[in-house]
């Protein structure tokens, strides 16, 4: 369980997050949606222990988050995950040496699934291949928490589809708590259980995905549009 209690983050005079209180339950898949600059990435970095709140607190399994959480949490970040001079297999080896929970066999399965060549250099990979490699690295870890910050950014629809399939195949549903930030709601919607909307550093709405369809007859994208100014989302 991840609990945010009155969390605020201020960079200088700019408030990136304002008084956020929310509980992520164990074993569920969450989507954090919202326009650029709404605070999505800041929230992820805070849960990952890379950024500390200015006010309020974040508790994971009842304990305040610190840098140490990196050992029990897998984080797919938008930047700084891959070393350009490494080959794919060296990247995998590096992760395996950094994290005791890294599962080599799972990495091998994912290598085949993601159609990646182990001998290729990271700098020679396409954007789509780099996105797949990043996902391989985090999904190979056996952690209770999986954070995916914009896993689809800059990827074409074919690759996005492959990534969604990879998530469904390799997430340990019911055990892993998964939080995904994204703009590409359509692709990911069938995988999400809960969605929350961030706007200007605040949670302005949240919903259970199937409930929104059942009660309101809306997809998450349509639900979003009713909750935020259209131009801000698209």
């Amino acid at each position: 369980m991840i609990m945010l209690e009155g969390v605020t983050k201020q960079y200088g005079t700019r408030k990136s997050l304002q008084d956020i209180s929310y509980t992520f339950e164990k074993g569920k898949v969450y989507g954090i949606l919202g326009p650029n600059g709404s605070g999505k990435s800041t929230m992820m970095k805070m849960i990952a222990g890379l950024v500390y709140p200015t006010g309020g607190k974040i508790l994971v399994e009842g304990k305040p988050v610190s840098r140490k959480i990196a050992a029990s949490l897998a984080f797919l970040s938008t930047e700084g995950m891959l070393y350009q001079n490494f080959k794919v297999e060296q990247m995998i080896h590096f992760f395996a040496t950094q994290y005791p929970d890294f599962q080599r066999e799972k990495a091998e399965e994912l290598l085949a699934f993601m159609e990646l060549d182990r001998r290729q250099k990271v700098s020679r990979l396409s954007k789509g291949q780099q996105g797949r490699l990043k996902l391989l690295l985090v999904l190979s870890r056996n952690t209770d928490i999986l954070l995916l910050d914009e896993p689809f950014i800059g990827l074409d629809p074919m690759v996005r589809d492959m990534i969604v399939k990879g998530l469904v195949s390799f997430i340990d549903f019911g055990r892993q708590t998964v939080i995904i930030t994204t703009h590409e709601i359509n692709e990911i919607e069938p995988v999400l259980e809960e969605a929350l909307l961030l706007d200007n550093g605040r949670i302005t709405a949240f919903c259970n995905v199937e409930e929104v369809r059942e009660k309101d007859g809306l997809s998450v994208l349509e639900w979003l549009k009713t909750n935020v100014k259209k131009e801000a989302v698209l």
């Binding site: 589809d161 969604v164 399939k165 359509n186 069938p190 199937e210 809306l218 997809s219």
Partner: peptide
């Protein structure tokens, strides 16, 4: 894959 699903009905049904 979601293109295969209609928006107005729960996916499970």
């Amino acid at each position: 894959m979601s293109a295969e699903f209609k928006t107005s009905k729960p996916i499970y049904s």
